[in-house]
């Protein structure tokens, strides 16, 4: 979970960096960046590694969740434990599942629509079209809140699992975590809004 999680956080950072080019508008670098990724041969195996990373992450997550079911055959009458656990930690399996569901839609919307269109697609136009629909924007904004929740649990947890969240580094990791779980989703969340309200044309 930890290693694939780290890999996916790195990918999110890359994805966000790329998306920030959207702010340059239709004549900016975003479309050429997307074209390059879509046509440069070396990107193909990297894409498969990325798919593999996702698959492994969700399979491991599902496996841990399944294994832990039934460890408490009878639930407590008074539910007190949940009060002591961060909401994001309690919900990580559910936020993860929602992110997966979103991802299927997201890939159909952009990846499949551009790669399998049969003709060259201007990625900026595709994105701008998608974010001209307020419903799409609302759904994406909800997703970014969910993503923030998932990262709030996941980022610090990956260091814990790797044995690096020691007494000395606990505070530092949690502080860096804020950048990851707050700023990454905020960065993503700003893009549809800016595009809709005319910040990038």
């Amino acid at each position: 979970m930890a290693l694939t999680g780290f890999f996916l956080v790195s990918f999110l950072m890359f994805h966000l960096t790329m998306n920030l080019f959207l702010f340059e508008g239709s004549r900016g670098s975003f479309s050429s960046f997307a074209d390059f990724l879509g046509t440069f041969p070396i990107v193909r195996p990297i894409e498969w590694i990325l798919f593999g990373g996702f698959l492994l992450h969700l399979l491991l997550g599902g496996f841990v969740w399944l294994m832990n079911r039934g460890v408490r055959p009878q639930a407590y009458k008074v539910k007190g434990t949940s009060k002591t656990i961060k909401l994001s930690s309690r919900l990580s399996i559910y936020t993860g599942t929602l992110i997966l569901a979103f991802l299927v839609w997201h890939l159909i919307q952009f990846f499949i629509a551009s790669r399998f269109a049969g003709h060259p697609v201007d990625m900026f136009v595709l994105v701008a079209q998608a974010f001209s629909n307020p419903v799409t924007i609302v759904l994406y904004e909800i997703l970014f809140v969910i993503l923030g929740f998932h990262l709030n649990h996941g980022f610090q947890a990956l260091f814990q699992s790797l044995g690096l969240r020691t007494a000395k580094y606990r505070g530092f990791i949690d502080a860096v975590g804020v950048i990851v779980w707050l700023l990454i989703p905020l960065g993503f969340a700003s893009i549809p809004l800016v595009m809709y309200f005319g910040g990038a044309r």
């Binding site: 294994m67 832990n68 460890v71 002591t84 930690s89 309690r90 649990h153 947890a157």
Partner: peptide
């Protein structure tokens, strides 16, 4: 022994 796997919820530390 059949104990579950840690998912880093830190419920243990709290209690």
């Amino acid at each position: 022994e059949g104990f579950g796997s840690c998912s880093n919820t830190y419920a243990c530390e709290a209690k």
